[in-house]
Write a protein that binds this DNA or RNA. Structure first.
Lengths: 161, 161
DNA sequence: TAGATTTGCGTAACCAGTTACATATATTAT
DNA sequence: ATAATATATGTAACTGGTTACGCAAATCTA
């Protein structure tokens, strides 16, 4: 028997375990960057990828694409701007919007960062046993959540409603 | 093709998706409790379960059992105390320790809470398609992480080290 | 039995997300 | 053309975790 109470809890322990796993990845990635004297942060990866692919994007576009709230993106981007990785220019058509893009510094650093990200991807492949079963199961869960989310299902399943 | 960039990112998107999922469960559970006029919070579930099973525990014991840091437990328990769900008594053998236990109020509320938790468990079973494949894959990942964690593997796999 | 070390708990500052609200600009409708 | 509405961004306060540090009590050691 495991001495891990969350595992012992079965289904009910899943949410806690997801949180633990997610935190572990975030903190360890942060430590990795610090160890390698890199001033970038874990979740910047997805912003870099996105701005490489799309050149220019607004806060709202990024928030929608990553399915995060816009204040989350504002915070992220502000820090990236402060460290000189992202430039912004006001949209000529719409004065509310900022078009965001990778700075020259960011583009210069990309080859080094790419090495880190490749190492991260390989490490993940190792951890998943070189198969996509976990990814596939998570995909199914996400699809299921899209149909009817956790709260909706709990409400429906509560007896004596 | 999905319009979800994290999915598009493949392995590299996994950590972001875990975070998203974990957050979704936490926020939706919190909303559920609020909707049902319950003043308890999502992660109290595991404390309730633990103190039902073990009667009395210290902060450090709880932190070890749940694999969380002790300040996390201190915060949790302080709020549970403030709302009257947990009582504490100083250990007679060791004046540093507090023995924590469920209050009378907590025990009275247990039947109602149990209904909520049952609904949550059923909802999770639904979301997982009434099988433990996701749980199993997560277990494998946890085991793998215990052997050598993400950061260690990234360091090892980084070329030109 | 005194000094060093370890242990248990607490606090502060941080991180990465959220919701709720504010404000400025654009757009739509009358 | 103006009023109402919608959209883009920003800010504040919260949540639930972390690490780093401090202090007091207990334990070990010489």
């Amino acid at each position: 028997m495991s001495d891990d109470f969350l595992i012992e809890m079965g289904y009910a322990g899943l949410t806690g375990r997801l949180k633990r796993l997610s935190d572990a990845f975030i903190y360890q990635t942060r430590d990795f960057y610090r160890e390698h004297e890199s001033d970038i942060e874990p979740n910047w990866h997805m912003i870099f990828m996105l701005l490489q692919k799309n050149e220019k994007m607004t806060v709202t576009q990024i928030a929608d694409t990553l399915q995060l709230s816009h204040p989350a993106i504002v915070k992220l981007i502000n820090k990236m701007k402060k460290r000189g990785y992202v430039d912004a220019e006001i949209d000529s058509q719409d004065n509310r919007k900022y078009q965001l893009m990778l700075s020259q510094k960011a583009k210069q650093k990309l080859p080094v960062l790419q090495e880190y990200w490749t190492a991260g991807e390989k490490a993940l492949e190792e951890l998943l046993g070189f198969n996509t079963r976990l990814l596939d199961e998570i995909q199914k869960l996400e699809d299921c959540m899209a149909e009817a989310d956790f709260r909706t299902r709990m409400d429906k399943l509560l007896v004596n409603e």
